Computed example of a mutant assay.
Amino acid sequence: MNTLVQREAAEIREEWMGCALTTRPADRPAAEAAISGLYRLIGYAPPRFHWVSSPLMALETVPPGIRPAESIERLADWPVTRALISLMQTLCMGLNGRLTWAQRPLDQLIGRVVRAPLARSVDSALTEALLQRRESRYDPADRWYAAQSPSWIAHYDGLRRAVGVVFTPEQTHQLDLWAAAVRSCGWWWPREGVCVVSERPVALHTEPGDDIGEVRLHRADGPAIRYTDGWDAHAWHGRRVPAWVITDPSVERIAREPNVEIRRCAIERLGWPAYIEQAGLHLVATAPDPGNPGSHLRLYDMRAETKVLIAVNGSVERDGRRRQYGLTVPGFLRDPVDAAAWTYGLSAEQYSQLLRRT
């Protein structure tokens, strides 16, 4: 039973992943009908719709007739937003109440197979690009953006389709409206009388994430996400980075970058061999890697009181190669094996006894 549910749940996850990350143009009539239906459920007349080409345009656009109290900086205080979040939360509580005791373990399975991978994938591919662009002030955990995530909708869709949970007609109607909105457009911002809705991106590049079923934003030769008006974002293996990291990484720019994660991404983009040569790093020592037989560890001086350990990944990448990567370690370390052991919180002797590092 669990195997069949898991298989169907994985199919449902992929279906919703396709909806969330599609680059097809928005279905404007379907989006407006769904959003209008949600407005009616909270006691508001359907709004007029103001379509924009990208989320950035939505954040910078003030539709005619908007009061200062409804500026984007006060998104969490908008009456319609608060009412819709409350509607969603009440719906979720009601849907949870439809579970029988026998179905609760399967609810957890749906959470693992459907909800969690979708939530992490959408956060990586869409939410982070939206909220961190230009050092945005918005909290990535903002309840309104979470309410628009397909992850919770897919969870309950999985419960009714894969587990057989029966919802009431009213619950089904509400869930279908939220689902239709996600399926038909990008982000939307609901005010009294007007709703700003964004088109979808025209390009979206992802790669498989670390966990089964997940994807993350990544492109090595250009913007990972792009909209028709030119708004874009660059990403390296799920980490949003400035454009120069992808388009023109250099030793000089890396040296000036204060963020250690962005420096790491830029070095990986440039390539560790090229970075070591161009930066003129001094080789301190090299040694066979006891945690990865057949590979060597190399320790270089990098900055004051800092060294970098160059190692080879113990597992094979999807392209059949073993990735070379660098780890910063304290400057007092002089032996590569000691440095490798330090990264694991082990002694050199303990590290040397590892069967194989991954």
Rank of each mutant, 00 (worst) to 15 (best):
T3M: 13
L4Q: 15
E8D: 15
A10N: 09
E14I: 00
R24A: 15
A31L: 10
R40S: 10
I42T: 11
Y44F: 08
P47S: 11
P47Q: 12
F49T: 13
P55C: 12
I66V: 15
A69T: 04
A69P: 00
E70H: 08
E70Q: 11
L75H: 12
W78E: 08
V80G: 03
G94A: 11
L99S: 12
W101A: 15
R104Y: 09
L109C: 08
V114K: 00
A125E: 07
T127D: 05
Y138I: 13
Y145T: 12
P150M: 14
A154Y: 06
L159T: 05
T172G: 11
D176K: 04
A181I: 02
R183Y: 00
C185E: 01
W188Y: 15
V194Q: 01
V197W: 04
S198N: 08
P201H: 12
G213T: 01
E214Q: 15
E214A: 01
H218Y: 06
A224V: 07
I225M: 11
W231Q: 13
D232N: 14
A233M: 12
H234S: 13
G238I: 00
A243L: 09
D248R: 14
P258W: 13
I262S: 01
I262L: 05
I267L: 06
G271T: 04
G271P: 03
G271M: 07
W272K: 03
A274N: 15
Y275W: 15
A285E: 10
A287N: 01
D289T: 01
P293N: 03
P293G: 02
R298H: 11
R303C: 09
K307M: 02
V316Q: 15
Y325D: 01
F332D: 09
L333A: 06
D335H: 13
P336M: 08
D338N: 12
A339K: 04
T343E: 03
Y351N: 06
Q353L: 14
L354R: 15
